[in-house]
Simulated scan of single mutants.
Amino acid sequence: MSGKSSLDASLIPADWVGQPGDPRGQRPRQVPAPVPVPVPVPPISAVITKAEFDSKYYQIKSGLVLVLNNKEFLVEGEELGDRTGTDIDASTISQRFSEIGFEYELETDLTKSATLEWFERVKRQLIKKPVDCFALVILSHGTENGVYATDHFMRTEDIVETFNATNCPPLRFKPKIVIIQSCRGTTLSRGINVGLLDPNQADTIADTTEYHQWLMGLPATVTIRLPNEADFLFAYAAVPGM
């Protein structure tokens, strides 16, 4: 047998190359990883009658409103004071929606995780017991882009996305109302100082002279500040970032 050995080149993979001076011989060629091709997401199919689509009105016979009432906070890096008086707003809102036939769920001082768990539970509930209209009322501290749970910030777009047509099928083609009672920035609202009218005296029979005499005799504490934004209905055509 000869002391020389032979090498069958057909056994060498095509992606191997020799490295000069390397006693180990050939090393694998670096092949770039394939770039993943995004898979298009097919559109969701849903069914709605032409009569419903063409109708100018929603058929609302039932409704559900969620009222989140956050008043005490412990958010790292933020100094958020207690929201004194928010219980009155929460009670009034729940009562008003109840008067127009809505069922309501009221939760107070929820963490971010507890809030999201609540939303998910309600979504499962809507599968078994659908409604014609859904409303979400959040009473909390906030910024231009979202609101605060008791422990963390929540973006408005994430909250809205939770109940959109893709993520909450029971609410497809249903009106969804989101009311957020919070600041959307740090600028204080300007306004004008006005005196309070006697709520027991109708405007049509009010005597101007008597009114001014009554107003001049009132203590200063009766004067209130009317925000410049009063008497406006603010509607946003798109969520932030869209």
Rank of each mutant, 00 (worst) to 15 (best):
G3M: 13
I48S: 00
T223H: 09
S6F: 12
T186Q: 12
F232Q: 06
P13L: 10
R29H: 13
T221P: 01
P42E: 01
M242D: 00
S5Y: 10
I159Y: 05
I192V: 06
P199F: 00
N164T: 14
Q213F: 05
I100H: 05
F97E: 02
S140R: 06
L74Q: 10
H152C: 02
L106H: 08
S62A: 13
D8C: 12
A90T: 11
G185E: 03
K4P: 06
D54Q: 14
S2C: 12
K129G: 07
I177L: 15
L116Y: 12
R155V: 07
A51K: 04
I12D: 06
M154E: 04
I138C: 07
T150R: 04
D198A: 08
R172Q: 14
R155W: 08
K123M: 14
E72R: 10
S182R: 10
K50W: 06
E210S: 11
P23N: 08
F102T: 09
L226K: 07
Q19L: 15
P28W: 05
T187M: 00
G191Y: 06
T221W: 02
D22W: 01
V67M: 01
E79H: 06
F234S: 10
T221F: 00
E157S: 11
K123R: 15
S10F: 03
F153P: 02
H212K: 02
S182T: 09
I177T: 12
K112T: 08
I93V: 04
V65Y: 02
G3K: 13
A238R: 00
D82E: 13
G217Y: 01
V194P: 07
V131N: 10
I159E: 06
A237D: 12
E78K: 15
G81C: 10
Q95K: 08
M242H: 00
G101W: 15
K112N: 10
E120V: 15
F53I: 05
R96V: 13
L74P: 04
T204R: 15
D207R: 07
I159N: 03
R184W: 04
S5M: 14
D15G: 14
K71E: 03
W118Q: 15
E78T: 04
P43I: 01
D207M: 10
K123H: 13
F97G: 03
F173E: 11
K50I: 05
R172A: 06
I205A: 09
V131H: 10
V222M: 07
T156K: 12
I44S: 01
I60W: 03
N200Q: 03
M216Y: 06
L66S: 00
A14R: 11
L116E: 13
G21C: 14
G3P: 12
G21V: 11
V160A: 08
R96T: 11
V65T: 06
L215T: 00
T143G: 08
G241D: 06
G85I: 07
Q59V: 11
V222R: 10
D87Q: 02
D198M: 09
L136M: 07
T156I: 14
E52G: 07
L171D: 05
E78Q: 14
L80G: 02
E107Y: 08
I93P: 02
Y57G: 12
D89S: 11
V194C: 11
E161Q: 15
V67C: 05
S98P: 02
K123I: 15
V75T: 01
E52D: 12
Q125V: 09
A90Q: 10
K50G: 03
A238F: 00
